[in-house]
């Protein structure tokens, strides 16, 4: 490639990334520390915000656990077994990535709300509230992050093949032993990336949780909802500080992934 063209491309890309991502993200960090640590410590000591942060972690961790178990299981089924409708299922599993979070929330409300939902009234009559409560928030979060573990694990499973598993089985290992001793170590990194990405996505979910949670202060308000509420109530310092914490977690997640991944490729 000619030198002038190469430099033009380089400069265009760097400027574009700087104006679209790097500078704006830097400004949020700067605004969060506009008054030193005052805003950060204010949100950490405010009981409602602290509750929101705790709730975000609780919901996020539950969603990640569910998605990891489901994701690894369904990946094994998709790669290692044949069954009718497999291709359709595989395409449908990607659906959550392109559905609007508001539509996700609406869909869950239509089925699980306690008044007019398809299943909601029955569930509530046995004392199980989904919408405007933690279970609904977990479901919404699981929905939006659903494909992430699967997308990471399926290619790894296909790459390692099943010769070792067959060997283990022919030597008398049971299915549990085969999974624990052969399959799991082989797909370990794929699972870890999937978990880190799901965690980033789960902690940051906003739209779907907003619809199903009812957004009640001190009860069902999560960290992302706090950002919106604080900004709209002219508490910009608090909004920037909360946003900074969320951004820090998200960026930590992608940095962790980008550091681990090449190491695994060298191996």
């Amino acid at each position: 490639m000619g030198k002038p063209l190469k430099w033009t491309f380089r400069v265009v890309v760097v400027v574009y990334m700087f104006l679209l991502v790097a500078w704006p993200v830097f400004l949020v960090a700067k605004n969060a520390f506009a008054d030193g640590f005052a805003d950060i410590s204010a949100i950490l000591t405010d009981p409602d915000t602290a509750h929101a942060l705790r709730l975000t972690v609780i919901v996020g961790v539950q969603a990640v656990i569910i998605n990891t178990i489901f994701g690894v299981g369904i990946s094994l089924l998709l790669v290692r077994y044949d069954f009718p409708g497999k291709r359709l299922l595989s395409a449908l599993l990607d659906m959550p990535l392109s559905v609007s979070p508001i539509v996700v929330g609406l869909a869950l409300v239509l089925v699980y709300n306690g008044r007019t939902g398809w299943f909601g009234p029955a569930l509530e009559s046995v004392g199980y509230q989904v919408i405007f409560a933690t279970p609904g928030m977990v479901m919404a979060t699981v929905f939006v992050a659903l494909p992430l573990v699967i997308r990471e694990v399926v290619p790894v499973l296909e790459e390692v093949g099943d010769e070792q598993e067959q060997a283990a089985r022919s030597l008398g290992a049971g299915p549990v032993q085969t999974f624990r001793r052969i399959t799991l170590p082989a797909i370990k990194w794929g699972v870890i990336y999937g978990v880190v990405l799901s965690l980033a996505r789960s902690l940051g979910e906003f739209g779907a949780v907003k619809v199903v949670s009812g957004n009640v202060l001190g009860e069902t308000r999560t960290a992302t909802l706090v950002v919106e509420e604080k900004y709209l109530n002219f508490d910009k310092g608090g909004a920037y500080a909360t946003a900074f914490l969320l951004a820090l977690i998200a960026i930590a997640c992608i940095v962790v992934v980008s550091i681990i991944r090449p190491k695994e490729q060298v191996k």
Binding site: V28, G204, G207, E228, L246, A247, A250
Partner: peptide, 10 residues
Amino acid sequence: ALPTIVAGLV
């Protein structure tokens, strides 16, 4: 990876 509400603020 960034939460969308944070993206808006950013």
